[in-house]
C-alpha cells in the first residue's frame, strides 16, 4: 500500500466513521462487525503514515513490541464482549474509551507487527480466524440476546457475518501462502 493511497484512505475514512456512527450503532452487526474493525483500521492506517514521517517509531515499535502487542490484543478482546457494546451506547465515558482505545490498538498492532517472529504472527492469524469461527457460531446458537440494546435476530445476523468474515479471511490467508509473493523473514 503506497503512502498516497494510505493518506487518501485515512482522510476519507475518518469523516465517514464519524458521520455514520449513529447509523452504524443502530445494529449489533454493523456496530461490532463494521464500526469496531474500522476504528482499528483507521489506527493502523495512521500508524503506517506515522512510520513514514518518523522513522524513530520503527525503533520504538521494535523496542516495545511485546507491550504494544499485549495492549492491542487485550483491547480488541475486550471490545468483543457484547456488554461493552451496550455500555458504549449509554455511557459517554465508555463511548469515549471506544473511540480512543480501538484506533490506539490499530496503531500498536502496526508498530509491533513487523518485529514479531513469523511463528507468532502465524499463531495470531490462525487464532483470529478461529475466534471469528467460534464467536460466529456462538452468536448463532446463543439462546438469549447478550446486548439489551439489540434483538436476538440482530445477534444471529452478526453470527452469520462473522462466519462470512472467517471464510474471506481464510481464503486470503490460504492464497497468500499458497501463491506467495513475499518470502518469510
Amino acid at each position: 500500500m503506497t503512502d498516497n493511497f494510505r493518506q487518501a484512505m485515512f482522510v476519507m475514512l475518518v469523516p465517514v466513521i464519524i458521520i455514520s456512527h449513529h447509523w452504524l450503532e443502530t445494529s449489533m452487526t454493523s456496530h461490532m462487525a463494521v464500526q469496531l474493525p474500522l476504528l482499528v483500521f483507521v489506527g493502523a492506517l495512521f500508524a503506517g503514515l506515522l512510520q513514514t514521517y518518523s522513522p524513530r517509531l520503527v525503533v520504538f515499535g521494535q523496542r516495545y513490541r511485546i507491550s504494544l502487542l499485549l495492549y492491542s490484543l487485550f483491547t480488541i478482546s475486550l471490545w468483543m464482549l457484547p456488554r461493552l457494546l451496550d455500555a458504549a451506547l449509554y455511557q459517554s465515558s465508555i463511548a469515549f474509551l471506544k473511540w480512543l482505545s480501538l484506533p490506539l490498538a490499530g496503531i500498536s498492532l502496526v508498530l509491533c507487527w513487523r518485529h514479531l517472529p513469523f511463528v507468532l504472527r502465524g499463531i495470531l492469524h490462525l487464532e483470529l480466524l478461529a475466534t471469528l469461527l467460534r464467536l460466529g457460531w456462538l452468536y448463532l446458537i446463543a439462546p438469549q440476546r447478550y446486548c439489551v440494546s439489540y434483538g436476538i435476530n440482530d445477534q444471529q445476523q452478526l453470527g452469520h457475518v462473522l462466519l462470512g468474515y472467517a471464510a474471506v479471511y481464510g481464503l486470503f490467508l490460504a492464497s497468500s501462502v499458497l501463491l506467495g509473493g513475499r518470502r518469510a523473514n
Partner: peptide
C-alpha cells in the same frame, strides 16, 4: 508446522512452489 511454513516460505517463496 508454523516453523515449517516459515522455513519453506523463506526458501521457496510459496507453498505452491
Amino acid at each position: 508446522y508454523l516453523d515449517v511454513a516459515r522455513a519453506l516460505l523463506a526458501k521457496y517463496g510459496s507453498l505452491g512452489r
